[in-house]
Design a protein around this nucleic acid. Structure first.
Length: 480
RNA sequence: GACCCCUUCGUCUAGUGGCCUAGGACAACGGCCUCUCACGCCGUAAACACGGGUUCGAGUCCCGUAGGGGUCGCCA
């Protein structure tokens, strides 16, 4: 509570509009954790009427790829989490980053360090052996630059305070204090003159006017270092909010098997962006007993005080459930195109005008049975299947000699049905069951197999009505 | 190892000292509906990590223990 008040006060005093940013490094796809971080940044900015920006952290030229940039931007676009302005590419600001570092050196807030990688490694090894955190010991901090070895390009390190403590009133984690002795003189500029992440982030956050840094709590330790840099630059430290990481079903780090997939993989698996966002929102954040929270509602309700501090596990079953819900809520016309696109890639279908029309008409009935767009395509495919239909094992088992006999009779009875409607077909099929002294299921199930090639489908009268007289009768005769 | 963080049903969570014989959701199980499978509806089982305090009273505050996570790069 104290931390929250503190930061709100800070915000009021400076009378700043909220500006957040999502800053992924383009070394891979946009994974679930990143998507949630983006969501929280977006929601927080919208809730407070502020701005939400994007920044691509590509200072590591060797590991950054254009494919990754595209994957991330595409993923964000799919989730409707594109930034309010075109993304900032950190790489473009390198000159500026270097200039700031140089100025820090002239002002005595940073210095040149000539340590070799081997020297640093030895330092770390010794620290560990002595049971200390592996930190740079500041051996070049006050050393005479005249002692610089010849031919060695120096790095620039920040001169951080040796004593006292650094306090961060994190909007999620609360007040966190670290002794300054635990913060070493970290590198601002590499030997080749390029900025490190730690430095570029702070300079860019200043330049972009970021007021709230919302990111994964794997950055919590960085925040103390970055706070020192902000101070060295005489700039206000933004408010921090470190959100807990997402774990896999087994409680360990997200692995390839569950969440560590790119969001585009979820799109392919047939999840709706709205459902994924709703799921991600509820992972680590809650609003009373509410579960179904569409975007507009989320913007109204979201705030950082609702974010929990414990890591949460990724649960596919809940995502499935939520996706099923959103599937049912989405207007049929909107998902018809998505389903059709998926059907077009399937073999064994005849997607002519009549078939497409049947699929469209059948969609509402299939929806209740689907969790994903893949399920939907699976469930609706029979409406466009080429004759004779392929049967699954259970459907084939349903077509006993007796059942085929019943189908024969049914085909004859159906000739007399004048109005090809659900009601009339219902009456006709029930009539046959009664006359043959069997339960409705004894007729309905083989009929289902004949019409859909499956043992499970939407209501069989609905199926028959949508298929139409000609197609339905043809499919029945195919199995007689 | 050092530093930092975390710990309510299997999972996501509600809970901010009395409203908690701990609520909701997903999953599980049982039932209703029913031409199948679903959807929907009804119901059952299921948790405050452990130990000490503080307090008239603790899931809620404090300390410790255990377990989990994160960080310790001229990566981000």
């Amino acid at each position: 509570m104290e931390a929250i008040l503190y930061n709100l006060t800070w915000n009021k005093i400076t009378n700043m509009t909220v500006v957040t940013r999502f800053a992924p490094s383009p070394t891979g796809f946009l994974h679930i954790g990143g998507a949630r971080t983006a969501l929280f940044n977006y929601l927080f900015a919208r809730h407070h009427g502020g701005k939400y920006l994007l920044r691509i952290e590509d200072t590591d030229r060797a590991r950054s790829t254009q494919e990754a940039v595209d994957a991330i931007l595409d993923g964000l676009a799919w989730l409707d989490l594109s930034g309010d302005e075109p993304p900032v590419f950190q790489h473009a600001g390198m000159e500026r980053h270097a200039a700031v570092a140089r100025e820090l050196v002239t002002r005595g807030r940073a210095y040149l360090c000539y340590c070799s990688p081997e020297e640093l490694e030895a330092m770390r090894a010794e620290a560990r052996a002595q049971g200390r955190t592996a930190l740079y010991d500041g051996r070049w901090r006050d050393r005479d630059p005249g002692e610089a070895p010849a031919g060695v390009a120096p790095v620039v390190r920040l001169k951080t305070p040796l004593e006292g403590e650094t306090v961060i009133d994190d909007l999620v984690q609360g007040r966190v204090t670290v002794q300054n002795s635990q913060i070493d003189d970290f590198i601002l500029l590499r030997a080749d003159g390029t900025p490190t992440y730690m430095h570029a982030v702070v300079v860019d956050d200043c330049d972009m006017g970021i007021t709230h840094v919302i990111r994964g709590d794997d950055h919590l330790n960085n925040a103390f270092r970055q706070a020192q840099l902000f101070k060295a630059m005489d700039r206000p430290v933004p408010a921090f909010a470190h959100i807990p990481l997402i774990h896999g079903q087994d409680g360990a780090k997200l692995s390839k098997r569950h969440g560590a997939l790119g969001v585009e993989a979820y799109q392919e698996m047939g999840y709706l962006a709205e459902a994924l966002c709703n799921y991600l929102l509820r992972l680590g954040w809650g609003h009373g007993d509410d579960e179904i929270i569409p975007r507009a509602q989320a913007i109204e309700w979201f705030d950082l005080d609702g974010v929990g501090r414990a890591p949460s596990r990724f649960d596919m079953a809940k995502l499935d459930n939520l996706n099923g819900h959103y599937l049912r809520e989405t207007p049929d016309a909107d998902i018809a195109d998505l389903v059709m696109a998926r059907l077009e890639t399937r073999p064994g279908l005849v997607l002519d005008g009549a078939a497409r029309e049947r699929v469209r008409k059948g969609l509402p009935g299939v929806k209740a049975r689907a969790k994903t767009l893949v399920d939907l395509a699976d469930g609706a495919a029979f409406y466009a299947a080429a004759r004779p239909l392929a049967m699954n094992d259970k459907a084939a088992a349903l077509l006993t000699p007796e059942a085929r006999g019943l189908m024969q009779s049914l085909a004859e009875n159906l000739q007399t049905v004048t109005e090809w409607t659900e009601e009339a077909l219902d009456a006709a099929v029930r009539g046959l069951a009664e006359k043959s002294q069997v339960k409705l299921g004894a007729v309905a199930q083989p009929l289902r197999a004949a019409l859909t090639g499956s043992n499970a489908s939407p209501g069989i009268f609905e199926v028959m009505a949508i298929l139409g007289r000609e197609e339905a009768l043809a499919r029945i005769k195919d199995i007689c």
